[in-house]
C-alpha cells in the first residue's frame, strides 16, 4: 500500500530524514517510534504531499507522491499533531467542508458525515462550535476529518498527545476499529502505545530507521536472555557467587535499588528459571524476599537502539 524508496528530506544543511525505505502492506497498523525531532512528522508530511522530498520518492496505492499528488491526496486521510480545525465552525459544517474538498460526492455526503460522527462519538456535538469543544472532542473531530472520505491510508501524527488517560484508551480503540479496513501509520513517542496498537514498529532516530519489526520480535531480539531480580536476606555477595555456579546462567550482578541490594540474574529463555533460582537461594541457606521476572520493555529497546548511534 505504501512504498517508501530512499526518501531524504533536508532543510538547508539539516537532514531531517536521511535515506529511509520501508513498505507497509494493506490493512497493517504501523507505528513510527522515535524521540522528538527524529523525523517522524517530516516523513508524514512528505508522504501526505505537504512537503517535497529532497531525494527519493514514495508511492501510495501505486501513485507517486510527486507525479500524481492529487491521486495520492484522494487516498489518504491525515491527522496532523494539532488537528486542523476551524474554531469558528460547527462540527457538522466543518466536516461538510472537509468532505467537499476531499471529493465526497454531494449525494450521500450528509449521510456519510452522520455516519462518521457516529463512529467518532460526535453525534451529540454536531451543532457545537469547534472552539468550544474539549481537547478530547477536538481530537475526535480531527480523526473524523481524516476518515470522512473513506481513504485507503490513514496517517496520524501523535494521535493521543495531550489527551487524558481515558481519552487515550478511547482513541486507541477508535484507531484499532478503523484499521480493520484500512492501512494506518501513526507516530508516537509513547512506547506502550505502539505495543498496544501496532502490528509493526519502525524505530526512527536522527532521520534514520533503526529497526523495523513487530513489537514482540523486537523485544525478543534485543533481549536474548530473561532477567530476574532477586532480593535475598543475608550476604548479597554470597548469593551472587552462589547463583553464578548454576549451569547456563549468562550473567549475575547486583545493583542497589531504593536503598536495597538486588541480585540481577540473566538467564536463557529456554526454560522457566523461577523454581530453579528459588531452590538455589534456599539451598544457600538464605531467605528469599522477592523474585520478579523483568521483561525488557520496548522502552529499554528503544533506549538501546537510539543511544547506540551516539556512542559511535
Amino acid at each position: 500500500m505504501i512504498e517508501v524508496d530512499h526518501l531524504t528530506k533536508q532543510y538547508g544543511s539539516f537532514t531531517a530524514v536521511d535515506d529511509i525505505s520501508f513498505e507497509v502492506g494493506k490493512g497493517e497498523i504501523v507505528g513510527f517510534l522515535g524521540p522528538n525531532g527524529a523525523g517522524k512528522t517530516t516523513t508524514m508530511r512528505v508522504l501526505t504531499c505537504f512537503l517535497p522530498a529532497s531525494e527519493g520518492t514514495a508511492r501510495i496505492a501505486g501513485f507517486d507522491i510527486f507525479d500524481e499528488p492529487l491521486e495520492v491526496k484522494k487516498r489518504i486521510g491525515y491527522l496532523p499533531e494539532s488537528p486542523p480545525l476551524y474554531r469558528d465552525m460547527h462540527v457538522q459544517t466543518y466536516l461538510d467542508f472537509v468532505a467537499s474538498i476531499k471529493g465526497v460526492p454531494k449525494t450521500g455526503r450528509t449521510d456519510r458525515i452522520v455516519e462518521v460522527m457516529g463512529q467518532c462519538g460526535l453525534s451529540d456535538r454536531a451543532g457545537q462550535l469547534i472552539g468550544q469543544l474539549s481537547k478530547g472532542y477536538r481530537q475526535r473531530v480531527g480523526l473524523a476529518q481524516a476518515i470522512v472520505h473513506k481513504p485507503d491510508v490513514i496517517i496520524m501524527d501523535e494521535p493521543t498527545s495531550g489527551l487524558d488517560p481515558n481519552q487515550i484508551i478511547e482513541m486507541r480503540g477508535l484507531i484499532r476499529e478503523l484499521a480493520k479496513e484500512r492501512t494506518v501509520i501513526l507516530s508516537t513517542h509513547i512506547l506502550p502505545e505502539v505495543e498496544m496498537t501496532c502490528d509493526r514498529v519502525i524505530i526512527i532516530n536522527n532521520g534514520k530507521i533503526e529497526a523495523v519489526d513487530t513489537p514482540e520480535n523486537l523485544t525478543a531480539n534485543v533481549r536474548g536472555t530473561a532477567r530476574f531480580a532477586v532480593r535475598v536476606s543475608g550476604d548479597v555477595s554470597k548469593a551472587v557467587s552462589g547463583l553464578a555456579t548454576l549451569p547456563d546462567i549468562a550473567d549475575v550482578s547486583s545493583e542497589i535499588r531504593d536503598g536495597e541490594t538486588v541480585v540481577l540474574v540473566d538467564c536463557p529463555t529456554d526454560r522457566d528459571w523461577g523454581p530453579i533460582l528459588s531452590a538455589k537461594v534456599v539451598e544457600l541457606g538464605m531467605g528469599l524476599l522477592e523474585m520478579r521476572r523483568e521483561d525488557l520493555s520496548l522502552e529499554e529497546i528503544f533506549h538501546a537502539l537510539t543511544t547506540r548511534e551516539e556512542g559511535v
Binding site: R45, T48, C49, F50, L70, E71, K73, K74, I76, Y78, P80, S82, P83, P84, L85, Y86, R87, V98, I101, K102, G103, Q145
Partner: peptide, 14 residues
C-alpha cells in the same frame, strides 16, 4: 497559524 493550511494542502485540491 491555525494549522488548517496543512488540511488544505493535503486535500485533493490545487
Amino acid at each position: 497559524r491555525g494549522g488548517t493550511y496543512e488540511l488544505l494542502m493535503t486535500s485533493p485540491i490545487t
